[in-house]
Design a protein around this nucleic acid. Structure first.
Length: 549
RNA sequence: GCCGGCGUAGCUCAGCGGUAGAGCAACCGCCUCGUAAGCGGUAGGUCGCCGGUUCGAAUCCGGCCGCCGGCUCCA
């Protein structure tokens, strides 16, 4: 069985022998023969009882699929040279009408009905196009997309390393990657300070009691690193920062005058993700959230929520991330994995939708996508190969304040229950940077580039002037490197271009004499000569404005 | 975690039963050059790990580890 998907099609088979990539050419060959023979397809319907009887004892999957077809909908079959399949259709009338420009791309295991407790089928994926050119174009674009894969660029540009000896899913940030990471943190810290956040720092572990109170343990025990037990105590590597921040709130009696209280932390958390889920920077076991928890009154929720949307959109806009979608995750009314009372859930879901609408966001609502403690708004982007990843998230939570029994004193002198908003515009710095690497294809804007300016002296006798240029750039706060290697100028330019350095300054006799630099600007694709001071001032201004070009 | 594939020098890869190779990178030397690779030399690998088959294993088989593509999961 199998449908059409975004980029082609797939078909699931409960095959007695596993299918491997090596089998695909043979299957393709048979498919082409079927097309060439131009076989007719015949559609017919059967009543439910008869349809089930046909597959009973032969194909339990089809029996179940037929049972799932709603009453009143037709149960249709397609027959082609003795082979009959249950299918909603439609199909082409004759196989010869299908253009032969298709390719089976890969095989995979897939659980029946997407349920890991059900048997696993062999799934064959393929793509199909109207013309040979479109197929070729698709395959070419796939190859191009692989070149922007952040795992590949991370190695080529020496940004990060995941070393199995350190542990899978654990990221080692190399000097160049760490510069980008620090710049992103600095950016977020500045923007948050402008918006009334206060920075806190909390430890990497917390007592098991803390997480029992929050409800995260033992509920999520299988995705946490197991408790560390010593003497009479037990600690957990922190899987999230929220409980720590709640305890900061609870440290003293709070007044309504203090709210909203916005506690922010670049907090590193550890989660035991399934080994098969790990993926470069986008799915790791240790990551740093640009986390914050906003404690506010129920009346303030919507306004605070809108402010977080504004911050998130500002961050995306600064980085030129335009291709994202907003997704509101609500509770699945038929599930019991959620905590808290219905009135709070309904209120929170309404507040989120209103906030999103009033901020002019287009969004989809996905039932069952909420956190266990509350509904949320997520910002989702695609990576170079089209896979979706959740970045920023904003969540309303009536539950943790309840569990930790935190209050504030209202104008009436009585205690009231605050609401918490959990939010992280980046989501995780690791994932965000992984996506950013692919978004820029490694060509970071000047303010993020690990090496912003490379200075290439034409011969050894220009080293002195090159160092002067480098000194002027460094004094202006720019990250500049003088290339003193005994290589030809062309070779140096090639190496810096491959490292995707935004600006290369070439200096020789003419420049040294006139106190100028020959500018080779990657973004502007421009080459010009200008006075040293003017170039330094221009570059410094571009960095200060965190400009994209 | 599950299904399938892959694992040879820092990187990209060749070798696929007879005992390890190339290019780039690194290092040393020569060259002093005007916008994407100057020339020569040196060094570097228990062929992921463990076990089996064999006179002999990088090569064949099994287990483990890691990675890749999906599936499931994602507080």
């Amino acid at each position: 069985m199998g449908p059409v998907i975004e980029h082609g099609f797939y078909y699931d088979i409960d095959a007695p022998e596993p299918i491997s990539d090596a089998d695909l050419p043979e299957i393709e060959k048979i498919m082409r023969e079927i097309l060439k023979r131009d076989l007719p397809l015949r559609r017919y319907e059967l009543p439910r009882e008869e349809a089930i009887r046909r597959y009973e004892g032969v194909d339990p999957y089809k029996v179940e699929l037929i049972q799932d077809i709603p009453e009143g909908e037709p149960i249709s079959f397609y027959e082609q040279e003795g082979f009959t399949d249950l299918c909603r259709g439609p199909h082409v009338p004759k196989t010869g009408m299908i253009p032969p420009h298709f390719k089976l791309t890969h095989v995979a295991g897939a659980y029946f009905k997407g349920d890991a407790s059900r048997p696993q089928m062999q799934r064959v994926y393929g793509v199909a196009f109207r013309s040979r050119e479109e197929l070729k174009d698709y395959l070419w674009r796939l190859e191009e997309a692989k070149k922007r894969d952040h795992r590949r660029l991370g190695r080529e540009l020496e940004l990060f390393l995941i070393d199995p000896m350190v542990g899978k899913g654990l990221v080692l940030w190399l000097p160049k990657g760490n510069i980008i990471r620090e710049e992103l943190i600095r950016f977020m810290r500045e923007e948050q300070q402008k918006r009334g956040y206060q920075l806190v720092t909390t430890p990497h572990i917390g007592s098991l009691e803390l997480y029992k109170t929050s409800g995260h343990y033992p509920y999520y025990a299988e995705s946490q690193f197991p408790p560390m037990e010593l003497e009479d105590e037990a600690y957990l590597l922190k899987p999230m920062n929220c409980p720590h921040h709640v305890r900061i709130y609870a440290a003293k009696k709070r007044s309504y005058r203090e709210l909203p209280l916005r506690l922010a932390e670049f907090g590193t958390v550890y989660r035991f993700e399934q080994s098969g889920e790990l993926h470069g920077l986008t799915r790791v076991r240790g990551f740093t959230q640009d986390d914050a928890h906003i404690f506010c009154t129920p009346e303030q929720v919507k306004d605070e929520f809108k402010k977080v949307i504004e911050l998130t959109l500002f961050v995306f806009d600064t980085l030129g991330l335009k291709d994202f979608r907003a997704r509101i995750g609500t509770r699945d009314p038929n599930s019991n994995k959620y905590v808290g009372d219905d009135a709070h859930w309904a209120l929170a879901e309404r507040q989120i939708q209103e906030a999103a609408s009033e901020m002019g966001l287009d969004y989809t609502v996905e039932e069952g996508d909420a956190a266990f403690y509350g509904p949320k708004l997520d910002f989702v982007v695609r990576d170079a190969l089209g896979r979706e990843w959740q970045l920023g998230t904003i969540q309303v939570d009536y539950n943790l304040p309840e569990r930790f029994d935190i209050t504030y004193t209202g104008p009436d002198g009585a205690p009231h229950r605050p609401v918490m908003i959990h939010r992280a515009p980046f989501g995780s710095i690791e994932r965000f940077l992984g996506i950013l690497i692919e978004h820029f294809a490694g060509e970071f804007p000047l303010w993020l580039a690990p090496v912003q300016v490379a200075i290439v002296p034409i011969t050894d006798r220009h080293h002195e002037y090159a160092e002067k240029v480098g000194g002027a750039l460094s004094a202006a706060g720019l990250r500049a490197e003088v290339d003193r290697r005994p290589e030809r100028m062309q070779a140096k330019i090639r190496d810096w271009e491959k490292q995707k350095v935004p600006v290369i300054l070439v200096v020789g006799d003419r420049e040294a004499e006139e106190n100028t630099v020959a500018v080779r600007d990657r973004r502007k694709k421009a080459r010009y000569t200008a006075p040293l001071e003017a170039v330094v001032a221009d570059l410094a201004e571009r960095v200060r404005g965190r400009r994209l070009e």
